[in-house]
Design a protein around this nucleic acid. Structure first.
Lengths: 175, 175
DNA sequence: TACCGTAGAGAACGACCGTTCTCCGCCGCA
DNA sequence: TGCGGCGGAGAACGGTCGTTCTCTACGGTA
Protein backbone atom coordinates (compact mmCIF):
# COMPACT_ATOMS: atom_id res chain seq x y z
CA UNK A 1 0.00 0.00 0.00
CA UNK A 2 1.43 3.41 -0.85
CA UNK A 3 1.53 6.45 1.35
CA UNK A 4 -1.44 8.20 -0.21
CA UNK A 5 -3.76 5.28 0.21
CA UNK A 6 -2.61 4.74 3.78
CA UNK A 7 -3.29 8.38 4.60
CA UNK A 8 -6.71 8.20 2.99
CA UNK A 9 -7.64 5.07 4.89
CA UNK A 10 -6.40 6.58 8.13
CA UNK A 11 -8.46 9.70 7.62
CA UNK A 12 -11.55 7.66 6.82
CA UNK A 13 -11.08 5.64 9.96
CA UNK A 14 -10.16 8.62 12.11
CA UNK A 15 -13.22 10.52 11.00
CA UNK A 16 -15.46 7.63 11.92
CA UNK A 17 -13.86 6.66 15.22
CA UNK A 18 -13.03 10.11 16.58
CA UNK A 19 -16.55 11.28 15.90
CA UNK A 20 -18.18 8.16 17.31
CA UNK A 21 -16.19 7.86 20.50
CA UNK A 22 -14.40 11.15 21.08
CA UNK A 23 -10.68 11.65 20.57
CA UNK A 24 -9.51 10.42 23.96
CA UNK A 25 -11.36 7.17 23.57
CA UNK A 26 -9.58 6.19 20.37
CA UNK A 27 -6.00 4.98 20.63
CA UNK A 28 -3.48 5.02 17.83
CA UNK A 29 -3.61 1.24 17.90
CA UNK A 30 -7.37 1.25 17.39
CA UNK A 31 -6.86 3.41 14.34
CA UNK A 32 -4.03 1.26 13.08
CA UNK A 33 -5.96 -1.95 13.24
CA UNK A 34 -9.25 -0.48 12.00
CA UNK A 35 -7.53 1.15 9.04
CA UNK A 36 -5.35 -1.87 8.30
CA UNK A 37 -2.20 0.23 8.22
CA UNK A 38 1.05 -0.50 9.99
CA UNK A 39 2.02 1.69 12.90
CA UNK A 40 5.12 2.80 11.05
CA UNK A 41 2.97 4.09 8.21
CA UNK A 42 0.69 5.85 10.63
CA UNK A 43 3.57 7.89 11.98
CA UNK A 44 4.94 8.45 8.49
CA UNK A 45 1.65 10.02 7.44
CA UNK A 46 0.89 11.84 10.69
CA UNK A 47 3.85 12.49 12.99
CA UNK A 48 1.61 12.72 16.05
CA UNK A 49 -1.93 12.10 17.14
CA UNK A 50 -2.54 15.82 17.26
CA UNK A 51 -1.69 16.09 13.56
CA UNK A 52 -4.20 13.37 12.85
CA UNK A 53 -6.87 15.10 14.90
CA UNK A 54 -6.33 18.37 13.07
CA UNK A 55 -6.42 16.58 9.70
CA UNK A 56 -9.62 14.85 10.74
CA UNK A 57 -11.26 18.13 11.60
CA UNK A 58 -10.11 19.81 8.39
CA UNK A 59 -11.48 16.97 6.35
CA UNK A 60 -14.73 16.97 8.22
CA UNK A 61 -15.01 20.70 7.65
CA UNK A 62 -14.70 20.08 3.92
CA UNK A 63 -17.26 17.32 3.89
CA UNK A 64 -19.74 19.16 6.08
CA UNK A 65 -19.69 22.49 4.30
CA UNK A 66 -19.63 20.79 0.91
CA UNK A 67 -22.64 18.66 1.69
CA UNK A 68 -24.62 21.59 3.06
CA UNK A 69 -23.72 23.88 0.14
CA UNK A 70 -24.60 21.23 -2.42
CA UNK A 71 -27.96 20.53 -0.82
CA UNK A 72 -28.89 24.18 -0.61
CA UNK A 73 -27.77 24.79 -4.19
CA UNK A 74 -29.98 21.91 -5.35
CA UNK A 75 -32.89 23.65 -3.68
CA UNK A 76 -32.48 26.99 -5.38
CA UNK A 77 -30.35 28.56 -2.64
CA UNK A 78 -33.42 28.66 -0.42
CA UNK A 79 -32.32 29.58 3.07
CA UNK A 80 -34.89 27.20 4.55
CA UNK A 81 -33.23 24.28 2.83
CA UNK A 82 -30.50 24.61 5.44
CA UNK A 83 -32.92 23.26 8.01
CA UNK A 84 -34.02 20.40 5.82
CA UNK A 85 -30.39 19.43 5.43
CA UNK A 86 -29.94 19.62 9.20
CA UNK A 87 -32.99 17.44 9.69
CA UNK A 88 -31.49 14.75 7.50
CA UNK A 89 -28.15 15.02 9.27
CA UNK A 90 -29.72 14.74 12.72
CA UNK A 91 -31.49 11.56 11.72
CA UNK A 92 -28.40 9.83 10.43
CA UNK A 93 -27.45 6.87 12.60
CA UNK A 94 -24.54 7.75 14.84
CA UNK A 95 -25.25 11.48 14.83
CA UNK A 96 -23.41 12.89 17.82
CA UNK A 97 -23.57 16.65 17.43
CA UNK A 98 -21.00 19.02 16.01
CA UNK A 99 -17.57 17.44 15.75
CA UNK A 100 -15.95 20.83 16.28
CA UNK A 101 -17.89 21.68 19.41
CA UNK A 102 -17.17 18.24 20.81
CA UNK A 103 -13.47 18.46 20.02
CA UNK A 104 -13.12 21.91 21.51
CA UNK A 105 -14.89 20.77 24.66
CA UNK A 106 -12.53 17.84 24.92
CA UNK A 107 -9.23 19.31 23.75
CA UNK A 108 -9.70 23.06 23.58
CA UNK A 109 -8.02 23.72 26.89
CA UNK A 110 -4.81 21.92 25.95
CA UNK A 111 -4.62 22.06 22.17
CA UNK A 112 -4.80 25.45 20.45
CA UNK A 113 -4.59 23.92 16.97
CA UNK A 114 -7.97 22.28 17.52
CA UNK A 115 -9.48 25.58 18.61
CA UNK A 116 -8.10 27.21 15.48
CA UNK A 117 -9.66 24.67 13.14
CA UNK A 118 -12.97 24.91 14.95
CA UNK A 119 -12.94 28.69 14.74
CA UNK A 120 -12.16 28.50 11.05
CA UNK A 121 -15.08 26.13 10.55
CA UNK A 122 -17.53 28.26 12.44
CA UNK A 123 -16.39 31.40 10.64
CA UNK A 124 -16.86 29.74 7.27
CA UNK A 125 -20.30 28.51 8.27
CA UNK A 126 -21.38 31.91 9.51
CA UNK A 127 -20.06 33.61 6.44
CA UNK A 128 -21.99 31.22 4.21
CA UNK A 129 -25.14 31.59 6.26
CA UNK A 130 -24.66 35.35 6.08
CA UNK A 131 -24.76 35.21 2.27
CA UNK A 132 -27.93 33.14 2.27
CA UNK A 133 -29.51 35.39 4.87
CA UNK A 134 -28.72 38.57 2.97
CA UNK A 135 -30.49 37.27 -0.11
CA UNK A 136 -33.51 36.21 1.92
CA UNK A 137 -33.83 39.30 4.08
CA UNK A 138 -33.09 37.89 7.50
CA UNK A 139 -30.25 38.76 9.84
CA UNK A 140 -27.29 36.46 9.34
CA UNK A 141 -26.64 36.26 13.05
CA UNK A 142 -30.22 35.15 13.69
CA UNK A 143 -29.95 32.42 11.11
CA UNK A 144 -26.66 31.26 12.61
CA UNK A 145 -28.19 31.20 16.09
CA UNK A 146 -31.01 28.96 14.93
CA UNK A 147 -28.62 26.61 13.16
CA UNK A 148 -26.27 26.32 16.12
CA UNK A 149 -29.17 25.98 18.50
CA UNK A 150 -30.70 23.18 16.47
CA UNK A 151 -27.42 21.28 16.37
CA UNK A 152 -26.97 21.64 20.10
CA UNK A 153 -30.52 20.58 20.91
CA UNK A 154 -30.37 17.60 18.60
CA UNK A 155 -27.02 16.58 20.04
CA UNK A 156 -27.62 16.49 23.76
CA UNK A 157 -31.40 16.57 23.79
CA UNK A 158 -31.65 13.79 21.28
CA UNK A 159 -34.39 15.75 19.52
CA UNK A 160 -34.08 15.55 15.75
CA UNK A 161 -37.22 17.68 15.53
CA UNK A 162 -35.05 20.62 16.51
CA UNK A 163 -34.42 21.21 12.81
CA UNK A 164 -38.11 21.60 12.11
CA UNK A 165 -38.63 23.96 15.02
CA UNK A 166 -35.70 26.02 13.84
CA UNK A 167 -37.21 26.09 10.37
CA UNK A 168 -40.46 27.42 11.79
CA UNK A 169 -38.62 30.09 13.74
CA UNK A 170 -36.74 31.11 10.61
CA UNK A 171 -40.01 31.35 8.67
CA UNK A 172 -41.41 33.64 11.35
CA UNK A 173 -38.32 35.82 11.20
CA UNK A 174 -38.60 35.99 7.41
CA UNK A 175 -42.16 37.30 7.42
CA UNK B 1 -11.19 17.94 58.38
CA UNK B 2 -14.46 16.06 58.41
CA UNK B 3 -16.09 14.22 55.54
CA UNK B 4 -18.59 16.92 54.68
CA UNK B 5 -16.03 19.65 54.38
CA UNK B 6 -13.78 17.41 52.32
CA UNK B 7 -16.63 16.63 49.94
CA UNK B 8 -17.52 20.30 49.64
CA UNK B 9 -13.94 21.29 48.90
CA UNK B 10 -13.64 18.51 46.37
CA UNK B 11 -16.77 19.60 44.59
CA UNK B 12 -15.63 23.21 44.52
CA UNK B 13 -12.32 22.17 43.04
CA UNK B 14 -13.83 19.67 40.63
CA UNK B 15 -16.27 22.21 39.31
CA UNK B 16 -13.48 24.65 38.62
CA UNK B 17 -10.93 22.25 37.16
CA UNK B 18 -13.24 20.01 35.16
CA UNK B 19 -14.86 23.01 33.57
CA UNK B 20 -11.58 24.80 32.87
CA UNK B 21 -9.64 21.90 31.43
CA UNK B 22 -12.10 19.16 30.55
CA UNK B 23 -12.49 15.95 32.53
CA UNK B 24 -9.71 13.97 30.89
CA UNK B 25 -7.19 16.70 31.56
CA UNK B 26 -7.71 16.67 35.32
CA UNK B 27 -6.23 13.79 37.30
CA UNK B 28 -7.40 12.65 40.69
CA UNK B 29 -4.08 13.85 42.03
CA UNK B 30 -4.63 17.33 40.62
CA UNK B 31 -7.94 17.42 42.45
CA UNK B 32 -6.45 16.07 45.63
CA UNK B 33 -3.71 18.65 45.81
CA UNK B 34 -5.85 21.57 44.65
CA UNK B 35 -8.55 20.73 47.19
CA UNK B 36 -6.07 20.00 49.97
CA UNK B 37 -7.68 16.66 50.74
CA UNK B 38 -5.93 13.35 51.15
CA UNK B 39 -6.39 10.73 48.49
CA UNK B 40 -7.98 8.40 51.02
CA UNK B 41 -10.63 11.00 51.75
CA UNK B 42 -11.23 11.56 48.08
CA UNK B 43 -12.14 7.92 47.60
CA UNK B 44 -14.18 7.92 50.81
CA UNK B 45 -16.32 10.74 49.45
CA UNK B 46 -16.42 9.61 45.81
CA UNK B 47 -15.67 5.93 45.15
CA UNK B 48 -14.59 6.64 41.58
CA UNK B 49 -13.81 9.49 39.24
CA UNK B 50 -17.08 8.91 37.45
CA UNK B 51 -18.99 9.54 40.66
CA UNK B 52 -17.14 12.78 41.08
CA UNK B 53 -17.90 13.82 37.52
CA UNK B 54 -21.60 13.11 37.96
CA UNK B 55 -21.63 15.00 41.26
CA UNK B 56 -19.88 17.90 39.58
CA UNK B 57 -22.49 18.05 36.84
CA UNK B 58 -25.38 17.81 39.28
CA UNK B 59 -23.97 20.61 41.32
CA UNK B 60 -23.35 22.75 38.29
CA UNK B 61 -26.91 22.14 37.18
CA UNK B 62 -28.13 23.47 40.50
CA UNK B 63 -25.94 26.52 40.38
CA UNK B 64 -26.70 27.31 36.75
CA UNK B 65 -30.45 26.99 36.88
CA UNK B 66 -30.58 28.73 40.25
CA UNK B 67 -28.59 31.68 39.02
CA UNK B 68 -30.66 32.04 35.85
CA UNK B 69 -33.99 31.73 37.71
CA UNK B 70 -32.95 34.25 40.32
CA UNK B 71 -31.85 36.78 37.73
CA UNK B 72 -35.03 36.45 35.70
CA UNK B 73 -37.17 36.68 38.84
CA UNK B 74 -35.38 39.88 39.80
CA UNK B 75 -36.35 41.29 36.44
CA UNK B 76 -40.06 40.61 36.67
CA UNK B 77 -39.95 37.24 34.91
CA UNK B 78 -39.21 39.04 31.66
CA UNK B 79 -38.26 36.46 29.08
CA UNK B 80 -35.69 38.82 27.60
CA UNK B 81 -33.81 38.88 30.89
CA UNK B 82 -32.64 35.40 30.00
CA UNK B 83 -30.43 36.89 27.33
CA UNK B 84 -29.05 39.54 29.65
CA UNK B 85 -28.10 36.81 32.06
CA UNK B 86 -26.43 34.90 29.23
CA UNK B 87 -24.54 38.02 28.23
CA UNK B 88 -23.11 38.33 31.72
CA UNK B 89 -22.23 34.65 31.81
CA UNK B 90 -20.47 34.76 28.43
CA UNK B 91 -18.30 37.63 29.61
CA UNK B 92 -17.16 35.92 32.78
CA UNK B 93 -13.47 35.12 32.66
CA UNK B 94 -12.94 31.44 31.96
CA UNK B 95 -16.25 30.98 30.16
CA UNK B 96 -15.92 27.81 28.13
CA UNK B 97 -19.41 27.00 26.94
CA UNK B 98 -21.95 24.61 28.37
CA UNK B 99 -20.41 22.17 30.83
CA UNK B 100 -22.98 19.56 29.86
CA UNK B 101 -22.40 19.79 26.13
CA UNK B 102 -18.66 19.62 26.71
CA UNK B 103 -18.94 16.63 29.02
CA UNK B 104 -21.21 14.72 26.67
CA UNK B 105 -18.85 15.39 23.79
CA UNK B 106 -15.98 14.09 25.84
CA UNK B 107 -17.56 11.20 27.78
CA UNK B 108 -20.95 10.59 26.24
CA UNK B 109 -19.82 7.65 24.17
CA UNK B 110 -18.44 5.76 27.15
CA UNK B 111 -20.35 6.99 30.17
CA UNK B 112 -24.16 6.84 30.14
CA UNK B 113 -24.45 8.46 33.57
CA UNK B 114 -23.02 11.67 32.15
CA UNK B 115 -25.50 11.60 29.29
CA UNK B 116 -28.34 11.16 31.78
CA UNK B 117 -27.35 14.16 33.87
CA UNK B 118 -26.95 16.28 30.77
CA UNK B 119 -30.36 15.23 29.49
CA UNK B 120 -31.89 16.04 32.84
CA UNK B 121 -30.28 19.47 32.75
CA UNK B 122 -31.46 20.26 29.26
CA UNK B 123 -34.96 19.06 30.01
CA UNK B 124 -35.15 21.24 33.10
CA UNK B 125 -33.87 24.22 31.15
CA UNK B 126 -36.35 23.70 28.32
CA UNK B 127 -39.19 23.25 30.72
CA UNK B 128 -38.31 26.49 32.48
CA UNK B 129 -37.92 28.35 29.20
CA UNK B 130 -41.26 26.90 28.13
CA UNK B 131 -42.95 28.50 31.14
CA UNK B 132 -41.40 31.88 30.42
CA UNK B 133 -42.25 31.59 26.74
CA UNK B 134 -45.88 30.70 27.39
CA UNK B 135 -46.37 33.82 29.48
CA UNK B 136 -44.70 36.00 26.84
CA UNK B 137 -46.41 34.52 23.81
CA UNK B 138 -43.49 32.98 22.00
CA UNK B 139 -42.90 29.33 21.17
CA UNK B 140 -40.88 27.60 23.87
CA UNK B 141 -38.88 25.67 21.34
CA UNK B 142 -37.89 28.87 19.54
CA UNK B 143 -36.72 30.43 22.75
CA UNK B 144 -34.72 27.32 23.60
CA UNK B 145 -33.12 27.32 20.15
CA UNK B 146 -31.96 30.89 20.59
CA UNK B 147 -30.56 30.17 24.03
CA UNK B 148 -28.70 27.05 22.93
CA UNK B 149 -27.49 28.76 19.80
CA UNK B 150 -26.15 31.71 21.75
CA UNK B 151 -24.26 29.43 24.13
CA UNK B 152 -22.76 27.50 21.27
CA UNK B 153 -21.73 30.60 19.33
CA UNK B 154 -20.22 32.23 22.38
CA UNK B 155 -18.36 29.03 23.25
CA UNK B 156 -16.57 28.14 20.05
CA UNK B 157 -16.95 31.40 18.21
CA UNK B 158 -15.71 33.42 21.14
CA UNK B 159 -18.48 35.92 20.46
CA UNK B 160 -20.07 37.16 23.65
CA UNK B 161 -22.29 39.39 21.51
CA UNK B 162 -24.24 36.25 20.62
CA UNK B 163 -26.47 36.95 23.62
CA UNK B 164 -27.43 40.35 22.25
CA UNK B 165 -28.14 38.98 18.80
CA UNK B 166 -30.28 36.27 20.34
CA UNK B 167 -32.12 38.92 22.33
CA UNK B 168 -32.87 40.82 19.13
CA UNK B 169 -34.13 37.67 17.45
CA UNK B 170 -36.37 36.94 20.42
CA UNK B 171 -37.76 40.48 20.29
CA UNK B 172 -38.61 40.01 16.63
CA UNK B 173 -40.34 36.73 17.37
CA UNK B 174 -42.31 38.39 20.16
CA UNK B 175 -43.72 41.12 17.96
C1' DT C 1 23.21 -15.48 -5.85
C1' DA C 2 24.45 -11.45 -2.92
C1' DC C 3 22.98 -6.99 -1.49
C1' DC C 4 20.13 -3.19 -0.01
C1' DG C 5 16.27 -0.38 1.01
C1' DT C 6 11.67 -0.85 2.53
C1' DA C 7 7.53 -2.54 4.81
C1' DG C 8 4.94 -4.97 8.25
C1' DA C 9 4.23 -7.02 12.82
C1' DG C 10 4.49 -6.32 17.14
C1' DA C 11 7.56 -5.90 21.30
C1' DA C 12 9.36 -2.36 24.13
C1' DC C 13 9.63 2.05 26.43
C1' DG C 14 8.38 5.87 29.20
C1' DA C 15 4.86 8.50 30.91
C1' DC C 16 0.53 9.02 33.03
C1' DC C 17 -3.64 7.81 35.56
C1' DG C 18 -7.13 5.67 38.53
C1' DT C 19 -7.01 3.12 42.45
C1' DT C 20 -5.13 0.67 46.49
C1' DC C 21 -1.84 -0.12 50.07
C1' DT C 22 1.67 0.86 53.51
C1' DC C 23 3.64 3.41 56.87
C1' DC C 24 3.75 6.68 60.47
C1' DG C 25 2.16 10.14 63.68
C1' DC C 26 -1.71 11.68 66.45
C1' DC C 27 -5.59 11.45 69.50
C1' DG C 28 -8.73 9.65 73.10
C1' DC C 29 -8.97 6.38 76.66
C1' DA C 30 -7.76 3.04 80.46
C1' DT D 1 2.29 4.80 79.94
C1' DG D 2 0.34 1.53 76.71
C1' DC D 3 -3.10 0.70 73.20
C1' DG D 4 -6.06 0.99 69.26
C1' DG D 5 -8.36 3.37 65.76
C1' DC D 6 -8.07 7.15 62.49
C1' DG D 7 -6.12 10.32 59.13
C1' DG D 8 -2.55 12.04 56.06
C1' DA D 9 1.30 11.47 52.84
C1' DG D 10 2.72 9.33 49.27
C1' DA D 11 4.63 4.90 47.38
C1' DA D 12 3.08 1.16 44.68
C1' DC D 13 0.30 -1.39 41.31
C1' DG D 14 -1.91 -2.46 37.09
C1' DG D 15 -3.39 -0.78 32.99
C1' DT D 16 -3.41 2.23 28.99
C1' DC D 17 -1.50 5.16 25.58
C1' DG D 18 1.58 7.64 22.41
C1' DT D 19 5.71 6.75 20.36
C1' DT D 20 9.94 4.27 19.02
C1' DC D 21 12.65 0.24 18.11
C1' DT D 22 13.74 -4.44 16.58
C1' DC D 23 13.37 -8.27 13.81
C1' DT D 24 12.11 -10.57 9.84
C1' DA D 25 10.47 -11.10 5.08
C1' DC D 26 10.36 -9.42 0.50
C1' DG D 27 11.32 -7.24 -4.01
C1' DG D 28 14.37 -5.04 -7.19
C1' DT D 29 19.10 -4.85 -9.07
C1' DA D 30 23.77 -6.27 -10.48
Amino acid sequence: MDVDEAAARLLDTAERLFYERGVHNVGMDDLRSAAGVSLKRVYQCFPSKEDLVVAYLRRRHGWWMGSLRAYVAEHGQDVLAVFDWLDRWFREPGFRGCAFVNSVGELGATCPAVVDVALEHKRALRSYLGELADRAGIAGSHLALLVEGAISMAAVGGEPSAAQHARQAAEELLS
